[in-house]
């Protein structure tokens, strides 16, 4: 039963993809659309396969490094800050308006300023990813930490538990579903931030390659890079979901 469901989960979106690709291919061929406007899926695949080693691989590694470093640093900081805010109401009152502000701030607009401080290396982009990831993880975790059944807190009070004990035994595990929502969104935000930062100013990375290939009207390669970025986002999301299912085993 379970196996059949998971095959369905993989098969259904795959069918959509195949239908979409064949449809696009047919439309492009039928209306004779120029490759400068929209390259055919088959052309994207064949050109990218040929050029992958020389023109894409090293940039993919750079972008992955930025996303993963930023994600791994940003997620725990976001959870930790949310924990602090949830346990000290005065901090929450003082900071929560700014958290929402930070969620909506596109940090790529600050990339040129960061460059003045940190130079042109990867660190600028990693910083942009971290700053974009922290607030969204924080916002979701915070709503989880604040959303505890009162009767569970009463239980801990009846045992004379300390604040730390209550947080570890009740508040944190209770909030895990929302924390994971935050982490999943954090993965998406990390990907967007990394590529945007590469747009704003970088000589390497997939974001930079999209601009570079576009300027030479290498539309197949440009679209190829866009698809690879989408694939990174999906993979990060699914990996997090997998970890979530392994950890939250009590909810079935």
């Amino acid at each position: 039963m379970k196996a059949r469901r998971s095959t369905k989960n993989v098969l259904a979106p795959l069918i959509v993809l195949v239908v979409l690709l064949i449809g696009l291919e047919l439309i492009i061929k039928a209306f004779n659309i120029s490759r400068q406007v929209l390259p055919a899926p088959s052309a994207i695949l064949s050109v990218c396969a040929k050029e992958f080693k020389v023109n894409i691989w090293s940039h993919l590694i750079v972008t992955l490094k930025v996303i993963i470093t930023g994600f791994i640093v940003g997620v725990p900081i976001g959870i930790f800050c949310a924990a602090l805010l949830s346990q000290f109401k005065i901090l929450e009152k003082a900071f929560s308006p700014y958290v929402i502000m930070l969620v909506t701030t596109p940090f790529i607009i600050l990339v040129p300023i960061f460059m003045l401080w940190l130079g042109f290396g990867l660190n600028v982009r990693i910083l942009a990813v971290i700053l974009q990831t922290i607030p969204i993880v924080m916002l979701n975790s915070l709503s989880g930490f604040n959303n505890v059944e009162k009767v569970k807190l009463d239980l801990m009070n009846s045992l004379g538990a300390t604040k730390v004990q209550t947080f570890i035994k009740v508040i944190f595990p209770n909030a895990l579903p929302q924390v994971f929502t935050g982490i999943k969104l954090g993965g998406i935000f990390s990907t967007i931030a990394a590529v945007s930062a590469e747009f704003a100013g970088a000589q390497t990375g997939l974001g930079n390659r999209i601009m570079y290939f576009s300027s030479f009207i290498e539309t197949e390669l440009a679209f190829g890079c866009i698809l690879i970025i989408a694939l990174i986002g999906i993979t990060l999301f699914n990996l997090t979901s997998m970890v979530e299912r392994k950890i939250i085993i009590w909810k079935k």
Binding site: V151, K152, D154, L155, S158, L159, G160, P173, W250, K251
Partner: peptide
Amino acid sequence: IPREEQRNLGFIFQSHNLLPW
């Protein structure tokens, strides 16, 4: 009631109030 005294008490709630995790 201080913690030392709570050590001598057992509180049973209306709902079972077990921690699902």
